[in-house]
Simulated assay, not measured.
Amino acid sequence: MEIGSRRAHVLGVTGHPTGPWVAQQARNLMIELGDRAEGFRFLIRDRDTKFTAMFDEVFTAAGIRILKSPPRAPRADAFAERWIGGLRRELLDRILIVNARHLRRVPAAYETYFNEHRPHRSLGQAAPLRALPDPVEDDIRVIRRDRLGGLIHEYVQVA
């Protein structure tokens, strides 16, 4: 998660993450970020053994400093913990995942919803990738779009 913009990135899903797999996901993220990666100064991560030296090297090669959270301190990375809690409460507690393909699609759909539509208090009720529209004085109609089979609803103003 990018703290300043609140933009979340879902990198991959696997039942058995290993050090090399996690390092490959880090490489994929750096490719996805492209030139934007230069704007990052820190990566906050926990002390899980899956975060190997290969993982750290991906970020240090780009000039990003690695900060490890203290042991047994979930509040040290509160932004990520909040995102994971929201994913669980808003989605995973309400849906039955049927297979690996479904498990890849559901968090990807939530990532899109989170980044493009879900309002964030710290962003003035805007979404990370969408600014709020200008206020309209005319009669406004609101339409609802259902996502993930109606599990998540998006509301959009139409003039």
Rank of each mutant, 00 (worst) to 15 (best):
R41C: 04
R105Y: 09
P74W: 13
I66T: 04
D139C: 05
P119R: 01
F59Y: 13
W83E: 07
R88N: 05
G19T: 02
E154K: 00
I66Y: 09
A78Q: 06
F59G: 04
H102T: 03
D139A: 13
T52D: 14
E154F: 02
D146I: 01
R104F: 07
I143C: 08
Y155N: 08
A37Y: 02
T112Y: 14
E154V: 14
F59L: 03
P133A: 09
I31S: 04
G85N: 03
L87G: 01
R6H: 09
E90I: 07
R27N: 08
W83N: 02
G15H: 04
L87R: 01
I84P: 00
S122K: 05
A61V: 02
Q25T: 10
R141Y: 00
T52G: 08
Q25M: 11
F114C: 01
T18G: 09
I31T: 12
A78H: 07
M30G: 09
R104M: 09
I44D: 03
H117V: 11
A131D: 13
M54L: 15
D134C: 05
H9S: 10
A80I: 10
I140C: 14
M30R: 09
S122Y: 00
V142Q: 12
A73T: 14
Y155W: 11
V58N: 05
E81G: 07
I97Q: 03
A159R: 12
H102S: 11
S69H: 02
R141A: 01
V10W: 11
F55G: 06
G124S: 08
F114D: 07
V142A: 10
R7A: 11
R27A: 08
I95A: 08
V58P: 08
I3F: 02
E154L: 07
A131S: 13
V58Y: 14
T49S: 15
I84G: 01
F40M: 05
R75H: 15
F40I: 05
